[in-house]
Design a protein around this nucleic acid. Structure first.
Length: 116
DNA sequence: CGGTTGACCAAGT
DNA sequence: GACTTGGCCAACC
C-alpha cells in the first residue's frame, strides 16, 4: 500500500467523471516529481478500466483505475492498455467521449478547463 | 549495483 | 508541426 504504484492508483481513482488529469499533475499530487514513473505504474496497471467502462463484468468498480482520464500534459492521449497503437488509443477516446470529454485529432478539446 | 526502459516534459532545431 | 536532446524517476533485469 505504500509503494509508488499504489499511490498512483489511489490518485487516479480520485479523478471525477468528466474531468481529466495528466501524468505530471498526478505526480505533483503525490508530492513527487516522478511523472515518468506514473506512466510506468499505469502501464503495468493490474486493474483494467476498459472492461468496466464497456459494461462487461471485469472487476469491481471500486478497484478499477480510470486510466483513460490520464493524458499527457499537452492534452494528447498517450497510450492505453499497455500499448500506444492507434487501436488502443481509439478505445480510450471512446471512453472519454462517454464521459463528456471530446477528443479531436488525438487531443482533448478544451483541455485546460477539464484538467484538475 | 549499474544499465535499460517508458502510457513523460521542456526546450531546441 | 515533426524530430532530437537532455533530464526526470521508479521498475525491471
Amino acid at each position: 500500500m505504500n509503494n509508488f504504484d499504489e499511490r498512483v492508483y489511489g490518485a487516479v481513482r480520485k479523478i471525477p467523471k468528466g474531468k481529466v488529469s495528466t501524468y505530471k499533475l498526478i505526480a505533483k499530487r503525490l508530492r513527487s516529481k516522478a511523472y515518468r514513473a506514473v506512466g510506468q505504474a499505469l502501464r503495468r496497471n493490474p486493474y483494467s478500466a476498459w472492461g468496466w467502462a464497456k459494461g462487461k463484468s471485469c472487476q469491481r468498480q471500486k478497484d478499477i483505475v480510470p486510466c483513460h482520464r490520464v493524458v499527457r500534459n499537452d492534452g494528447s492521449i498517450g497510450g492505453f492498455c499497455g500499448s500506444n497503437s492507434g487501436k488502443e488509443v481509439k478505445r480510450k477516446i471512446v471512453l472519454l467521449k462517454k464521459e463528456g470529454v471530446i477528443v479531436r485529432n488525438g487531443k482533448i478539446v478544451d483541455f485546460k478547463r477539464k484538467k484538475i
